[in-house]
C-alpha cells in the first residue's frame, strides 16, 4: 500500500511537470496553430539557466527559477518575432521545420555554453515530510504544489483579466477577435512568453530530481505532444488532465510492469486510444 501511494505521488509529480509543458504547447497551438517543436528547447534553456544561476552565481532557488522563466520567455518571444511571424501564411510543415531549426540552434547553443555532460541541479529542499507513516520527498511535494498554484494562477489570468480573455478569444475565433480590436501580434508574443516561462519553471522544478543536458527537452516535448493530442489540441483543461493521466500511467506502469519500457507508455497509450477512437479522448467533433 505504501509503495502504491508512493507511485501515485511519483505519478502526480511527473504529471504536474508534463501538464506545465503541455499547457504552453497547447496555448501556442490554440493561438497560432503551430506544432512548436522548439518548445522542448525553451524547457531545456530554462533548466540550464536556473542551474547556472544557482551553481555559478549563487542565486537562491526561487529567484533562479524566476530568472529562468524570464530568460525562456524572452527566447520564446524572440522566436515568435523573428521566425514564426515571418511564416504567418506558410504551411504547417514550414512552421515545423522552422521550429526544428530553433531547436537545433538552442541545443547547439546549450552544448557550446554548458557542454554535453549531464548536470544535477542542487535544491535546498532535500529532506522529506513524514505523513501518516509515509515519507514524502519535499521536492516532489513542492513540484506538485507549485504546478497546482501556477495552473490556478494561469486559469485566473485567462478568465479574469482583459489580456487573458483576449488570448482565449483569439484561440476561439481569430477573425472575431480581430474584429473586436485585439492586436494579434501582441497576443501571440504574450502567449509565447507565457509558454516559454511555464516550460522553464517546469524544467527548473523537475531538474533536482532529474538531470540537465542539452537534449533533455526532446522526450518531454514529444510526450507533451501526445498529451495535447489526447486532451484535444488547444484545450487547456485537456492539457492538465492529459498530463496527469500520462504521468500516472508512466509511474504505475514503470513500477508494476517494467521500468525499461516506462518511456514507451505515453506513446503506447496514444497509439491505443487513437486506434480505438480516431477522434481523440475529449475532442468536440474536431480532428
Amino acid at each position: 500500500m505504501i509503495l502504491f501511494i508512493q507511485q501515485i505521488l511519483n505519478g502526480l509529480t511527473l504529471g504536474s511537470i508534463y501538464s506545465l509543458v503541455a499547457l504552453g504547447l497547447t496555448l501556442v497551438y490554440g493561438i497560432m496553430h503551430i506544432p512548436n517543436f522548439a518548445h522542448g528547447a525553451f524547457y531545456m534553456m530554462g533548466g540550464f539557466v536556473a542551474y547556472s544561476l544557482m551553481t555559478k552565481a549563487g542565486v537562491p532557488y526561487w529567484p533562479a527559477i524566476l530568472c529562468a522563466a524570464a530568460v525562456s520567455a524572452v527566447i520564446a518571444m524572440v522566436s515568435e518575432r523573428l521566425v514564426f511571424r515571418a511564416l504567418e501564411n506558410a504551411l504547417p510543415l514550414h512552421h515545423m521545420i522552422a521550429a526544428i531549426g530553433i531547436l537545433l540552434f538552442l541545443e547547439a547553443l546549450a552544448h557550446a555554453i554548458w557542454g554535453a555532460e549531464f548536470h544535477r541541479m542542487p535544491t535546498p529542499y532535500t529532506g522529506s515530510v513524514t505523513l501518516a507513516g509515509l515519507s514524502l520527498p519535499t521536492q516532489r511535494i513542492l513540484i506538485i504544489v507549485s504546478a497546482f498554484v501556477l495552473m490556478v494562477a494561469l486559469n485566473l489570468f485567462l478568465r479574469k483579466t482583459l489580456l487573458g480573455t483576449a488570448i482565449l478569444a483569439m484561440a476561439q475565433n481569430r477573425e472575431g477577435a480581430f474584429l473586436m480590436g485585439i492586436d494579434a501580434n501582441k497576443i501571440s508574443l504574450l502567449t509565447f512568453a507565457i509558454a516559454g516561462a511555464l516550460a522553464a519553471v517546469a524544467a527548473a522544478l523537475f531538474a533536482p530530481i532529474n538531470l540537465i543536458y542539452p537534449t533533455m527537452g526532446e522526450l518531454v516535448i514529444m510526450k507533451a505532444f501526445v498529451i495535447i493530442i489526447l486532451g484535444g489540441m488547444g484545450s487547456i483543461s485537456g492539457a492538465i488532465v492529459g498530463g496527469l493521466i500520462i504521468g500516472m500511467a508512466e509511474a504505475l506502469a514503470g513500477f508494476y510492469v517494467s521500468s525499461d519500457y516506462k518511456d514507451l507508455i505515453a506513446f503506447a497509450v496514444l497509439v491505443l486510444i487513437l486506434a480505438l477512437r480516431p477522434e481523440g479522448l475529449f475532442t468536440k467533433g474536431m480532428r
Binding site: 521566425v83 522552422a98 531549426g101 530553433i102 531547436l103 540552434f105 547547439a108 547553443l109 557550446a112 554535453a116
Partner: peptide, 12 residues
C-alpha cells in the same frame, strides 16, 4: 559540435 549554431539559422 557547434555546426548546428550555423545550420539551425540557415534552415530557418
Amino acid at each position: 559540435e557547434y555546426r548546428m549554431l550555423i545550420f539551425g539559422p540557415i534552415l530557418i
